[in-house]
């Protein structure tokens, strides 16, 4: 069933129509935390794409070959997945520091933060054990590894896109005259609301 057009729909659905930040509210902490300036949000987005891809492949494999065959998935998946992600991030950090200092400088400091980013856990869980998000696409009860990776890529690219857009808006917001009570975070929330409105407008595209 994995024709090219279906995979493309899966990608677009995950990246735009069901954007994880603005239509699902997952991963809002970094969204408000690092969007203060453009540079950090680009670094964070790169790190998220990278970690999500690794995390999804790991949880997919563990679910498929360990948890599901043993029949313990239903009650062990939460601790198992979060531990996999936490240790994976730790290893990636150590490896990057040794092997690629340039990449480490670009996204190193964001890696530990990502461990507790709910977007990573949510996406990795969805990739391994679909059903929570009700993606409205004929995918069947489980994804193949390829589908899981395309889905994860879509989610993480959508995350990065929304984060960078929001950071650009917030940089302009610093210069705007805002009422005293709304300065800082409240106006940021209203901006996020307007941005989210734009994404809601996309619901229904391609029947997603």
């Amino acid at each position: 069933m994995s024709t090219v057009s279906q995979l493309a729909l899966l990608f677009i659905g995950a990246a735009l129509v069901n954007n994880i930040l603005l239509t699902r509210f997952i991963g809002l902490c970094p969204f408000f935390g690092v969007s203060g300036n453009m540079e950090t949000s680009v670094g964070m987005s790169l790190a998220v794409v990278f970690v999500m891809m690794m995390a999804s492949s790991a949880t997919w494999a563990v679910w498929e070959y360990v948890l599901a065959p043993l029949g313990v998935g239903e009650f062990l998946y939460i601790p198992a997945f979060i531990l996999i992600i936490a240790s994976l991030v730790q290893f990636v950090e150590m490896y990057l520091r040794k092997a690629s200092p340039i990449l480490y400088r670009a996204m190193g400091i964001y890696l530990p933060l990502i461990t507790t980013n709910c977007a990573v856990l949510a996406t990795a869980t969805e990739a391994a054990k679909p059903g929570f998000f009700k993606m409205n696409i004929a995918l069947g009860a489980s994804l193949s590894l390829g589908e899981a990776l395309i889905y994860t890529l879509g989610v993480s690219v959508g995350f990065g896109f929304a984060l960078v857009t929001f950071a650009a808006l917030r940089e302009r917001l610093d210069l705007a005259p805002v009422s005293r009570l709304f300065k800082g975070s409240p106006i940021a929330f209203i901006t996020a609301g307007l941005l989210s409105l734009a994404y809601v407008g996309m619901s229904g595209w391609f029947g997603l």
Binding site: F182, P186, F189, A192, G193, S196, Y199
Partner: peptide
């Protein structure tokens, strides 16, 4: 009820808490 609504209401709640 839609997603943007949550952001708007919450923004006003923070402003209210500040007040």
């Amino acid at each position: 009820l839609l997603f943007p609504g949550a952001f708007f209401v919450f923004a006003f709640m923070i402003a209210g808490a500040r007040l």
